[in-house]
Design a protein around this nucleic acid. Structure first.
Lengths: 229, 229
DNA sequence: TACACCATACTACCATACAAGTAAACACGG
DNA sequence: CCGTGTTTACTTGTATGGTAGTATGGTGTA
């Protein structure tokens, strides 16, 4: 054979377990506020809806509960977790700390390929202005993940992703709170600072970027107190 | 009644589910290297050992897998996760970022009661010199959690805890790697900086503190390559 | 010996059944 | 009308059974 010495590719099993599929679906539904905070959601009910047994539903619930998106009360019922102000603030805090160090790393040794990628994403984001909040949220997620992976901290992204979910969820409670144009400007400013090797500037800008939600949070709580703990 | 207007205390259900108990036990066993990286550990086997059914075991496994401590391979078996160098490095990175911002907060407005608490812990830690690694690890955990909670970031502790688990696990692979005396000195230096309101100093010192494992990691990997991915 | 084939045992995944706790509706007695 | 006790439906927790995918050791064949 001509390719005896080639690198073995890592094969992938196409099968995605019922649990994983359901987990992803429910997570999206919760973050996107299709399932509102406080809403009741029982294992049996969901099982019937999807035509599966209770067990995989239960296992998806467990993971969601571990991520703070679901509240399982034994013998009482399961509920979409209400928003804890402290939890969201702390999630934001963690995310700011981590991403600040990430952009500091990136600015220390700017990488041309990465910057090109980021700038391409900026134009793509610009095209989404006026579109759906969900579409922008996805692009935003890719942008921030690209930063993490560009800094060689791909595993750290898992943490940021979880924190981000808490924050995005709050934003979805009131569709007013995706100031897309402003967010893109901030993204651009961050990329510029990285390109210039300005670590301090990049840090300051991403911290500001991630502090944006702080002003929205009290407003949203005022608008929808029933969604909060 | 004389106490009609008193605050209602929040009652606690004593019952702890089998799942939670098993999860805690297995987590400890994995971090403490009683279950070594790569070791096989099947649902049925554990169920039999503890005299319970497979289902709760499975659910405990799922949470452990989500935390990166277990590797579940469908239809193949479950294994104590081998150590991924990148995962540990990224966990350390996240922890450093978060705890750095925490001590900055603490130093900004030093609190006397908190500082008294911390200094008391320092003397307690001193008493543990020469004792078991596990005892010190617990005291260390309390210390760092106290910092997080003192800064009003109790929810952020969950994240740090998960990252800490990855790091402690590596240390347990070789009992040489708990330089207790040095760690306590660093703890003391951090407390001193906070007391003086020296945010920059506190940040620098906790970053140094948490970078300690970086020098140990390659050594441990050299010693026990079979434990690594 | 070397290799393809197959039987078998084992795994996690999913379905189903039962157990135990909770809460709400309701009947009853004051 | 109000408060109490009981019934009943519903919840999650746990146990067990069946299914499909995977690894392994043996067997036959060249």
């Amino acid at each position: 054979m001509s390719d005896r010495n080639r690198e073995p590719v890592t094969l992938q099993t196409v099968r995605i377990s019922v649990v994983d599929q359901l987990y992803a679906a429910l997570r999206m539904a919760i973050i996107g506020n299709e399932l509102s905070p406080g809403a009741r959601i029982s294992e049996a009910e969901v099982a019937q809806q999807y035509g599966i047994s209770r067990q995989p539903v239960r296992e998806a619930f467990i993971t969601l509960a571990n991520e703070g998106l679901l509240d399982i009360r034994p013998q009482r019922g399961s509920f979409v977790a209400k928003i804890s102000l402290a939890a969201v603030l702390d999630a934001r805090f963690v995310r700011e700390a981590v991403e600040a160090d990430i952009v500091k790393l990136l600015a220390a040794t700017p990488d041309a390929a990465l910057l090109a990628n980021l700038r391409q994403q900026l134009t793509r984001q610009q095209e989404l202005v006026g579109g759906s909040a969900r579409d922008f949220m996805e692009a935003d997620e890719v942008f921030h993940r690209t930063l993490a992976e560009g800094a060689g901290k791909g595993n750290a992204w898992r943490v940021v992703e979880e924190m981000k979910a808490q924050m995005d969820r709050v934003r979805f409670l009131s569709s007013m709170h995706f100031p897309v144009a402003r967010l893109i400007d901030q993204h651009r400013a961050i990329v510029d600072a990285i390109a210039e090797g300005d670590a301090t500037g990049a840090e300051t800008r991403i911290r500001t970027h991630l502090q944006g939600i702080l002003s929205d949070l009290p407003v949203i709580k005022q608008e929808r107190p029933e969604y909060f703990l």
